[in-house]
Design a protein around this nucleic acid. Structure first.
Lengths: 322, 322
DNA sequence: CGCGTTTACGTCGTTCGTAACGATA
DNA sequence: TATCGTTACGAACGACGTAAACGCG
């Protein structure tokens, strides 16, 4: 049994039992993987895959058992490497972050710039991925950190650290007379106008929709996008009232007025999620602290080293940093 | 990083930082280990040992961290091998049992004979070792099972399974007139005569001593031995009254009378202790069931596979099997 | 001067990639 | 016929053991 064999085995499973694809991902050749799996099966005396004549069909029950343990072994091996890299003060490394466009565009740049000063050779991958996949990606070691926001429950699937709270804001054309004057808009006002907001608002369980339906209202979501920049553009051309995260707005925008959203649209909390049972590189924790400076360095390190999670401090509102 | 490198590293630590000794134990040469450790340190970029000019002095803090993770990796690797061996129904294997002489002499033989029918090629090592060392030996993968008895608290340091309860009995020469007739002996009677019993009774915290001191009595422990056979011999030659485990006695002994010990001498419970987080070979669990047939096979397997420990049934008294 | 670690060297075993083969959809 | 896994072969790399050198007590 070899760490390489286990790595190949896991890669094949993660590639959907496609040895050729797995071989590319581990930077090796297909016959090499095929052979190593054979050796592993021979040594263990157990078939890991159900095979067709010339294809892998499924994991055997034994394969599933071995897979789980192989993942643990590889995670520990990665942890040793990460620990050692921290220990020797390595200035290079990779950091794969799963997050949304808003965080990537408005929150991460400044934070990344800050940690790049200390880790100039750091290579960062930003990846957008559905919430459901996040847990799996962290656990499989494909990602090092996820940034997730929620208005209700904190996420699961890893070590969860609350970073900051944020609210949504309304974007209105300066020449739009409907809301520019008078009292701040209410839910009933919003329900009367076409809205431009994030795609996620289309889901019935989105916090935005639920805020409306709590009043028996149905929002008129005219345009959606993943991207706050796109939303602003659509608002500028008059397609409706924008609802975006406060991090995404410029209060001095010459064309758009920024108004607070009605209080019934709930506040969100942004969380960092770290893979469990895996040592984080120092820059990963530094990135979290760059996003959320109120976090204690030692609390973070302890929690990331497998100690019990501390009672995290209440995350400050985003606006507090202005 | 290689499993071999980690294995060598752990072996060196377990050999007290003596590479030569470690090399013998892993069946390799000393320069081989030295080299692999060097490679490991080079790859990690971290020194694992504080070195004198020509000797290993101590583990570095980083070395301790790597050591802990290396042990987990090796335990998982062993678990994969054990799982696979179970899966393919391997009939060979090694089983190292830590236990006392009494268990080894009077309890294990029958149980081992039973499992040898199904695993004829099984190689069994019986080892006697102090209670303190047991936890470490199990954790370091040097032993697969410990059998421990206690009158008070169940042991710790692994997955603990209660096997049976047992009492101590008195051994008296048939021609000894002091107790052969009349009422069963009481504590005050015992305190008036020289006793022959186990070495462990010399420890002030032994349950035997405490039973006496609860009455304000001090036992006269004339002879001690590790070995019930020796104790019987000394009783036969008239050195005193024997106190041994009931498993060790033959009721039809032509020379010795067996009497129950006073009820103030507490009952003991024999426990099996399995290493945690390590898959047990089937024969290990079969051995436990051979000793304690009341155990449920599936409960055992589940508990040994890392599931939550079930509420184990009350272990039956040893005498119930007669 | 013995003990134990490190370094040097030659051999052997293993793994790798290229290439050819077989089977499948 | 294109795709994917297995088998065959030659080359290169790496690990091992033997032997020698080096420090320390």
């Amino acid at each position: 049994m070899t760490l390489t064999q286990l790595r190949y085995f896991v890669a094949i499973v993660d590639a959907g039992l496609n040895i050729t694809l797995a071989a590319e991902r581990v930077h090796a050749t297909q016959p090499g993987l095929s052979r190593q799996i054979k050796h592993l099966e021979d040594e263990l005396g157990v078939k890991l895959f159900n095979r067709g004549q010339r294809s892998l069909d499924a994991l055997t029950p034994a394969g599933r058992e071995v897979l789980a343990r192989a993942r643990r072994i590889l995670a520990e091996a990665d942890s040793i490497r990460a620990f050692a890299a921290n220990e020797r003060g390595a200035i290079d490394g990779r950091l794969t972050v799963l997050t949304t466009h808003t965080q990537a565009r408005y929150v991460l740049p400044e934070a990344l710039a800050a940690i790049k000063r200390d880790w100039p050779l750091l290579s960062v991958q930003i990846e957008s991925v559905g919430d459901e996949e996040i847990g799996g990606r962290l656990e499989r070691g494909i990602a090092d950190l996820a940034l997730v926001s929620s208005a209700t429950h904190p996420p699961t699937g890893g070590l969860v650290v609350p970073l900051f709270r944020w609210r949504r804001v309304l974007l209105i054309r300066r020449d739009d007379s409907r809301f520019a004057v008078g009292l701040p808009p209410r839910m009933t006002d919003l329900a009367r106008h076409p809205l431009v907001t994030y795609e996620s608002a289309l889901r019935p369980e989105s916090s935005l929709r639920r805020a409306f339906s709590a009043f028996g209202l149905e929002p008129d979501i005219a345009v959606t996008a993943r991207d706050a920049d796109l939303i602003k553009t659509y608002v500028r051309v008059g397609l409706g009232i924008g609802i975006v995260a406060e991090m995404a707005v410029d209060p001095d925008d010459p064309e758009l007025i920024v108004l607070p959203a009605p209080p019934e649209i709930p506040e969100c909390t942004a969380y960092g999620v770290l893979p469990e049972q895996r040592v984080a590189r120092d820059y990963t924790l530094a990135l979290l602290r760059a996003i959320a400076p109120h976090l204690d360095r030692h609390d973070l390190r302890r929690a990331a080293s497998g100690a019990a999670q501390p009672r995290w401090p209440e995350p400050p509102p985003w606006s507090a940093r202005l």
